[in-house]
Amino acid sequence: MTGPLLDIRDLVTEFRTEAGLLRAVKGVDLTIARGETLALVGESGSGKSVTSLSAMRLIPDRVGRIAGGEILFQGRDGRVRDLAQLDQRAMSDLRGSEIAMIFQEPMTSLNPAHRIGAQIAEAARLHEGLSAKAARARAIEMLRLVEIPEPERRAEAYPHQLSGGMRQRVMIASALVCNPSLLIADEPTTALDSTVQLQILVLLKRLQEEFRMGILFITHNLGVVAEIADRVAVMYGGRIVEDAPVDRILEAPRHPYTKGLLGSVPRTDHAARASGQRERLVQIPGSMVDPLRPPPGCDFEPRCAWSGPACRAAVPPLEATGPEGHARCIRWKEIA
């Protein structure tokens, strides 16, 4: 099969709020190839979750809608479908089988009233019509795969009997049970402490190689990105402001916002941990743009050290910064 696995074009997502129409995603383009990991990075409130929930079509009509753009997904059958246009029935056939998702909060994302084993095998029972017995065996196999000790016993446990790290492993197991070609992981390690974070990242990386799936990995922590990503897209105020291969982003950021994020990477190295100052952040001054009242020009301009009058005039276009990178900044050449 050729062509990208997921190709999001000019996605616009809006919410109806009491204060008016809130445009949380304002024309996002993203592509993920088979077996590739794209990290979507940005501060809290930049629109990462809304982008991923749009791709999963998990935004209830009551709350908001996809107002424009295409979400092209190439299925196992080779056909390319626009998920933005798919009806809920067809979409629920893809969810859990070809596209899976894991969430930030392993504490609350599992149903407290259901056994671990049943929750892991749920998608397989649903999509593959597995019998209760086969489902149990599959659940145990998946528990083993995500390296949970005593899988037979754990399958019978309830979520409250497991630690946060264990629960996130269970979430991963339940997402991968149907061997999806795309995994969307929305800050899967953010709620975990740093040693567990690293274990989960290593596990995801191993499973990706085994399953050859594409991953959209969402994080606000650039430190995590180096561990797992092939390419990085940086998001701010509902737009992609820079994208490039991971090394290029980390070594030579072209957008002032990316630069700012790199300056605020939490220090998780041994020296920092030993001295007890684990999260010494250099925050970007100012705060996230108010999505209800965006500035007329560049969203980042009010917080930007490089800003000038031209930045306030119009939203800057996404310009090619090399063979594989783009930046949404009219002065990107000066920033290198």
């Binding site: 629920s92 893809l94 859990g96 998702m101 994302s109 149903n111 998608a123």
Partner: peptide, 15 residues
């Protein structure tokens, strides 16, 4: 409005 309901939808369950 709980997270695990969203998880159930993400697994492909219908309403």
């Amino acid at each position: 409005s709980q997270d695990y309901i969203r998880t159930a939808y993400a697994k492909g369950r219908r309403e």
